[in-house]
């Protein structure tokens, strides 16, 4: 027996897979966006709206769930390319699973791909999926205290989309307080309060997404 010093983080192999996938996506000119949130925050509804609004772009969606294919069917009905991924009980997507889904999609001509991660504010934040952008959703009914309870999710996200703003009148959700709490954890985070139902705020989010796609294709 001999001793081998490794001092490697357990997620090192995932980080390598993630970097490889990001590079592959970049070569291909496709922007992969990792969508993270609690179950029921409106990920599929938001995506449905974006698919309808950004008609000039070719969009794809990877639906990651523990079971069922209801979300993938909803997305395909709108004309976007969708693939359902089952995580076999796992609470998050990792880079290897994302790369396999990308392979299975066989859709190299897509502009934007949304990875709808498993509904969960904890574990998905710890795994790099290989996405170029991390986007998190927080819906008004969930409460403005979530940045205090799930700091890592807010720290790892490039943008926070506050959804269901059409319900602000019915809940004790303090928008300013929520923004302040999120910025305290992550000063650079972009924040978009939206209602996918009424369309309020969607233009800002969508123009940010198209800008990021252009930047992803320009940068060396």
């Amino acid at each position: 027996m001999r001793i081998i010093q490794l001092n490697a983080t357990v997620t090192d192999s995932n980080l390598r897979d993630a970097e490889a996938l990001r590079e592959q996506m970049k070569q291909n000119g496709t922007l992969l966006i990792n969508l993270m949130s609690s179950p029921g925050s409106g990920k599929t509804t938001l995506l449905s709206r974006i698919i309808r609004d950004l008609k000039d772009l070719k969009l794809g969606v990877m639906e990651a769930d523990i079971a069922s294919d209801v979300d993938a069917r909803r997305i395909e009905a709108l004309g976007a390319r969708a693939i359902q991924v089952h995580t076999s009980g796992m609470c998050h997507m990792d880079a290897g699973m994302t790369a396999a889904a990308w392979e299975a999609m066989e859709a190299r001509a897509l502009d934007l791909i949304f990875l709808e991660n498993v509904g969960n504010l904890i574990c998905p934040a710890e795994y790099d999926t290989g996405a170029a952008l991390n986007l998190m959703l927080l819906s008004v009914p969930e409460g403005d205290d979530k940045p205090l309870k799930y700091p890592l999710m807010f720290q790892t996200s490039d943008a926070l989309v506050i959804t269901k703003t059409d319900s602000l009148d019915y809940f004790n959700f303090d928008l300013d307080k929520c923004v302040e709490r999120a910025k305290k954890l992550n000063p650079g985070i972009e924040i978009f309060p939206v209602s996918a139902k009424t369309g309020e705020g969607m233009a800002g989010l969508e123009s940010w997404l198209t800008q990021r796609l252009a930047a992803w294709r320009v940068r060396p």
Binding site: M1, R2, I3, T9, V10
Partner: peptide, 8 residues
């Protein structure tokens, strides 16, 4: 969560 060393 770090793998410090292994015996092998």
């Amino acid at each position: 969560c770090v793998i410090k060393e292994i015996e092998a």
